[in-house]
Design a protein around this nucleic acid. Structure first.
Length: 661
DNA sequence: AATTCCTGTATTTTT
DNA sequence: TACAGGAATT
């Protein structure tokens, strides 16, 4: 037996977490305690020693990155071939739900080729609907409607379930319910689902067709869920239904719950034993990542949270140096300090050793600027994602429309991109014609052309557009999708338009990247699905191309990563904890902000810097900034103050003084 | 009727 | 800064 099979390289709780397969299991895995290792080893253990077929395993993660990593590590561990690997169901909640829905869409009145809407599509659709229905309300802007509806779906609430708890004003109830219902009807008409619908409709499917649920229940003998603390109501119901026999292993950390704004429920982790009375709980508290000092600092901070199960991380490793605190004059000064320290910390230009973690993506700019000036290569993660770029979304919408003529949202996005002199009035005509025929907007456009209802110039352009989409559609039958994309972008004049815009080279480069991604996949259907669910082409999100680059990341996007040197910047009231959390969310929201800082601190292996500025540009004007309350909560014997002593005294000390009153 | 130009306003985190 | 909505211009 090899060492790998004997599991002697694992510590005792890790070994238990890998091998306990007789009943429901919750692994409370502290930061850096080898969680990913345990998960992949458990998968490997089931496949190799547990008499389990690859097709009988379902492993669910929250992010595509995590799914990809798990897949790669298991393949590596067991030397699995491509074929076997494909039989494993490893993916995100949304990805797995979409996979099931494509197989059974007809049972809930959808065509299996349904489109998945991203939040941008969702927002545009809701905006259009508010206009059509004359839904005007100072409070319920289309953005607020979009985010609230998304949240209701996360909470498992159908339109008729809404009550005063969700709607601040009772008088809103009927109107908002009606609007939510109208939105759902419109989605059905468009054969489309938004992110929330993927899980929502899955539950509906199982309710309507219990035999389908039973099929999956029998099939999946083992279900694994990563980042369990971030599961929302619908996801929780989804997994609990699938794991009806308690054949479930969840791995999570209540101290790292940072997605309650997306419906994540601390309760899921605090009351696991209520739902699975028989459950086994394993704690992983030995940390293999950070120095003793970093752990003590982070532990001191998270101890302030009242709502947690409680864990104490420890290490056999070195004590390490104290945390460096720096008080900057302003944001530019802060970026300058970080730049200088990075140059000191990264000998031989090993810049991938360092990461700068921010609360909001708007903070990244100052660092990008400073690094650019100093010639430090960097990579931003968690900001504007590849698939969210305007030119990429336009190109995808061209493909979507060629793929499915029913995709009115795609039609709307590109109909005047590049300009075809088809504005709101022309669009209104097209929509009316479509309604009349109960067809798509493309049908409407065809009719408008036939009738010559627009001016000659506009009619000509519209005809050319319709013909282009039609011939692209036919071309999809025999030609590679990448070739169809070329045709669409060339003949529509889109490429020409891009060439004349600012940042033309950037955009052209992005479109080339997209084309490459598409040419790798060959199957347009799966390309479109991955484009919306993954938002990053493979290789972009991967770590390998980060070699030699500093990572600038939001705290949310940094979860699961680790770096030798970490800079936690902008530690100011209003940023961390964020203003919104303090003003609207009360103490629970502040606890989540504290967890966010905890997640950031525990990313560091050797060196951790905490910085804040005395003034910061907000809304384009410079405003004084108060140091974060969290700074005062980190045990002071783990800290070493840098910068002018005056500013340190005024910084951390000032907040301490304020808190006494 | 479409587009450009301008002004005011708001900025958390993401599958 | 970036973006949406409104007014002025083509």
């Amino acid at each position: 037996m090899t060492d790998f099979d004997s599991l002697t390289d694992l510590n005792p709780p890790q070994r238990l977490a890998v091998t306990a397969t007789d009943k429901a299991l919750m692994v409370l895995a502290g930061a850096g305690s080898g969680k990913t290792r345990v998960l992949t080893r458990r998968l490997a253990y089931l496949l190799r020693q547990g008499d389990t077929d690859p097709g009988e395993i379902l492993a669910v993660t929250f992010t595509n990155k995590a799914a990809l990593e798990m897949r790669e590590r298991v393949a590596d561990l067991l030397q699995l071939d491509e074929q076997t690997l494909r039989r494993l169901w490893i993916g995100t909640f949304h990805g797995m739900a979409a996979r099931m829905l494509r197989l059974h869409a007809d049972k809930i009145g959808f065509d299996p080729r349904f489109t998945i809407l991203d939040s941008g599509d969702q927002q545009r659709l809701i905006k259009r609907l508010t206009e059509e229905l004359d839904f005007v309300d100072a409070h319920w802007t289309y953005k607020r409607l979009a985010s609230s509806i998304g949240r209701w779906k996360d909470d498992g609430l159908q339109p008729e379930d809404l009550d005063e708890a969700q709607l601040r004003f009772r008088r809103d109830r009927d109107r908002v319910i009606h609007f939510y219902q109208a939105y759902q009807n419109e989605l059905q008409r468009l054969n489309a689902m938004d992110f929330g619908d993927l899980l929502f409709h899955c539950l509906k499917l199982w309710q309507r067709a219990p035999e389908i649920l039973a099929g999956y229940q029998n099939r999946f003998r083992h279900i694994l869920v990563d980042e369990y603390q971030d599961a929302n109501k619908v996801q929780y119901d989804w997994m609990r239904l699938l794991a009806s026999q308690g054949n479930l292993c969840v791995v999570g950390d209540d101290d790292q719950l940072i997605y309650s704004w997306r419906g994540a429920r601390l309760d899921n982790i605090l009351r696991f034993e209520d739902d699975f009375p028989d459950a086994r709980i394993v704690r992983l508290e030995q940390n293999y990542r950070s120095t003793g000092t970093i752990l003590r600092a982070a532990g001191g901070l998270i101890d302030r949270n009242a709502n947690r199960r409680g864990k104490t991380l420890w290490t056999e490793g070195a004590e390490g140096a104290p945390l460096e605190c720096y008080v900057a004059e302003n944001g530019e000064d802060e970026a300058g300090f970080v730049t200088r320290e990075i140059l000191k910390q990264c000998a031989n230009r090993e810049f991938h050793r360092a990461a700068v973690l921010v609360r909001t993506s708007s903070q990244t700019r100052l660092f990008e600027q400073a690094f650019g000036e100093q010639g430090i290569p960097y990579r931003v993660s968690g900001g504007l994602r590849f698939m969210d770029r305007a030119e990429i979304k336009d190109a995808i919408c061209y493909l979507r429309l060629a793929h499915s003529a029913r995709d009115d949202l795609a039609f709307e996005r590109i109909i005047n991109q590049p300009s075809r002199k088809l504005g709101p009035k022309a669009l209104e005509r097209i929509t009316a014609a479509a309604r009349e025929r109960e067809g798509s907007m493309l049908d409407g456009a065809r009719a408008v052309v036939a009738e010559g209802a627009l001016g000659p110039a506009a009619t000509g352009k519209l005809r050319a557009f319709v013909e282009l989409v039609e011939s692209a559609h036919e071309m999809l039958d025999h030609a590679a999708p990448a070739r169809v994309l070329d045709k669409l972008l060339e003949e529509s004049g889109y490429m020409e338009m891009v060439a004349g815009e600012e940042r033309a080279e950037d955009k052209q480069e992005n479109l080339r990247e997209l084309r490459y991604f598409l040419s790798q996949l060959d199957d347009l259907e799966s390309f479109l699905e991955r484009a919306v669910l993954e938002a990053e082409p493979p290789g972009m999100a991967g770590e390998e191309d980060a070699l030699g680059r500093v990572v600038i990341s939001t705290l949310h996007a940094a979860k699961g990563l680790e770096f030798p040197v970490v800079f936690l910047v902008g530690l100011e009231e209003g940023l961390l904890p964020h203003r919104m959390a303090v003003e609207e969310g009360g103490s629970l929201a502040v606890e989540e902000e504290r967890r966010l800082m905890y997640v950031g601190m525990t990313r560091a292996r050797e060196a951790l810097y905490l910085t804040h500025a005395r003034s910061r540009r907000l809304f384009y004007n410079l405003e004084p900034a108060i140091p974060s309350r969290f700074l005062a909560e980190v045990p002071s014997d783990t800290l070493h103050a840098r910068g002018s002593r005056m500013s340190v005294a005024r910084g951390v000390g000032a907040f301490r003084a304020r808190r006494r009153f």
